[in-house]
Write a protein that binds this DNA or RNA. Sequence first.
DNA 1: GAATTGTATTCGACAATGTCGAATATGGTA
DNA 2: TACCATATTCGACATTGTCGAATACAATTC
Lengths: 258, 258
Amino acid sequence: MIQSIDRAARVLSSLQGARHLGITELATLLALPPSTVHGIVKSLQSHGLVAKEPNGNRYMLGPALLKLSNVYLDTLDVRARAMRWTRELSRRTGLSTRLGAELFDEVIIIHHNLRPDGSEQMPETGLSIPAHASAMGKVLLTYNPDAADDVLTRPLRSLTGETVTDPARLILQFALVAERGIATEEDEAVLGESSVAAPVVDRSGSVIAAVAVVMPSSEWPPDDNVLNDLRETARNISRELGATVWPPPVSRRHALDD
Amino acid sequence: MIQSIDRAARVLSSLQGARHLGITELATLLALPPSTVHGIVKSLQSHGLVAKEPNGNRYMLGPALLKLSNVYLDTLDVRARAMRWTRELSRRTGLSTRLGAELFDEVIIIHHNLRPDGSEQMPETGLSIPAHASAMGKVLLTYNPDAADDVLTRPLRSLTGETVTDPARLILQFALVAERGIATEEDEAVLGESSVAAPVVDRSGSVIAAVAVVMPSSEWPPDDNVLNDLRETARNISRELGATVWPPPVSRRHALDD
DNA sequence: GAATTGTATTCGACAATGTCGAATATGGTA
DNA sequence: TACCATATTCGACATTGTCGAATACAATTC
């Protein structure tokens, strides 16, 4: 791990708060001398990864990130393949759908289809949700025991009263997911919102993403048509990626076995 | 400039091509030894800024970029303020509108309103366009002579037969922009698409963004209502940001004066 | 299935490079 | 105007990143 790159990445992370930060603030946050931070920030700035506030001397994330992120999305194979299927899924179920990928202990939404009823809705692409509080996250963790270990060793943050924060309970849920190929979440990330998710598998048989259907908790539980449509969608995307089996087998040992 | 951070940023840039790259390819591209590149890439990977292809050993941009970029957009003051005005501008003119910021020799679209006619359109947020081929770019360069110098010293790439690639002609256009507070572009970036742009000014009087109206070239030139609506929009956003004068005066000397 | 090639990856010595503290500049506030 | 807080510059030092060689790995060919 290269020290200065690691520090640079930490600077970017620190800049994710709503508030913009000055050199001194960053320095105390990272426990580094201001001159060191200054050098890092200027290097990032010269590539547009960080920008100085128009007036004032605070720093914020830079526009180059938007460009890179756009390329990221455009060249993501899963996403390109999944889009037409999730659109169809949204249409059939009348619900909003998401495609998500793992980002450490979170799931990041890499594609979002609005509910087709034309109501006012926020685009959710780019949002990230703690893995343990999301149906997609539960899917991804179930099929990636390494990631699961990582998440379960740290304390689990509660987002709503319903968030499952007990590792043991989560592990039980993983077992269910492995069995049914489907994960659920009821009000665990956002009150009034629940979701069901299924794994997306690639040629090599690894789970590389998850598809989800999101519904108002008032309509919970989803009826069997929705579950079947979701399953079909996940299977279709996976097939298009070259997967041969669906749902996939769970790779091996789980956190409990240690 | 910190060497390793500079190199890391270059790695990210190189990964912007549609094709994913292996360590060796990156190494030859950057003229560095493979082991060096490997260290950099692994450091970036450990922060999710770069990701290994699911199977295979090529690298691509990572999901952390999407998260950072999302924060970038959400915390951009201009964007938040401009959105409601550009939506209104789209509605009044029946055209698609853009908000753009400078990114070195390009303009990056930080907000996009679709044409309200409900036709099939691509969201453009995140796209970047060479500054010299875009109306927004001409606005930004006109009011940032430093950036203009930078762009004009390098050869200008032609995107369509109509792209202005002669620095002298561009400088003439900048003078016109400075006079009228409005820049135009006819088929210069995309054939069949033309646009008009105006500057967005902040409290300190600097031009920090540009608003544009995009129309099919068949409807060119825009009538006076469109121009007035655009000007009003730019003025309103600027006012909301604390600007006192609009259009702003051009700061000082221009490339020609050297 | 064995061999070969083109990869990625690990390792350790060297010195180039980033780091840090002190000195200086800047800008805002009393 | 003087003061304070913050950003920024500078240079000596030793930590740290760099590089080439050695190794491991994987795919492809015969």
